[in-house]
């Protein structure tokens, strides 16, 4: 126990400042009213759905929880069920074998809800594209509010996407 406390003290606080929202990442405008977004504030619950990713985006989503990005320090946390979620964070081109599961997860998420597509595959289909097995971008299957490009996008870029989805448009433009 003593060694654990010593290590924690020696490590110190590593958290860095969060990025600013970026209006260019927005796909759909004004899906949620300003009043709703204000109510969310930053107390946001996210359900992640891997709809066919190569798992690199998952590495970066997990990295958002490390001490440098400290996502929970912003009031944003991941939940185990879509029924507890305000926002779906979707990775991958949507494989046809995941289409039904993704639609059901979307339907199970209570309104008002937001969707962020994460990574080049989610944004445009990426290198896998559309085929007998892949439906391509997430917006081909469910509505997407914000799309974050990158292969994979960095933790900061994903946080930026989430904050953009949460921020009333008037404020990000200011």
């Amino acid at each position: 126990m003593e060694n654990i406390v010593k290590k924690i003290l020696k490590t110190g606080i590593k958290s860095e400042a969060a990025p600013f929202p970026d209006e260019r990442l927005r796909v759909l405008r004004g899906r949620l009213s300003e009043a709703v977004l204000r109510r969310f504030g930053r107390a946001l619950a996210i359900r992640h759905v891997d709809a066919g990713s190569c798992n690199a985006c998952e590495l970066e989503i997990n990295a958002m929880h490390n001490p440098y990005y400290n996502l929970e320090g912003l009031g944003i946390h991941f939940v185990a069920s879509p029924r507890h979620a305000d926002l779906l964070l979707v990775t991958g081109p949507v494989s046809r074998h995941m289409e039904l599961a993704l639609k059901r997860t979307y339907e199970a998420t209570p309104d008002p809800k937001l969707v962020v597509a994460c990574g080049d595959c989610g944004v445009c289909g990426g290198i896998f594209g559309e085929s007998y097995a892949s439906l391509g971008r997430v917006a081909n299957v469910i509505p997407v509010d914000v799309a974050v490009p990158g292969c994979p996008p960095s933790p900061n870029a994903i946080i930026q996407g989430i904050l953009t989805a949460l921020m009333p448009e008037a404020e990000t433009q200011a």
Binding site: D50, G52, S53, G92, P93, S95, H97, M98, A101, I127, F128, G129, S131, Y132, A133, S134
Partner: peptide, 11 residues
């Protein structure tokens, strides 16, 4: 398994 099958070998 097979949920993330996205046609890699065909691609």
């Amino acid at each position: 398994l097979g949920y993330t099958h996205k046609g890699i070998e065909k691609r």
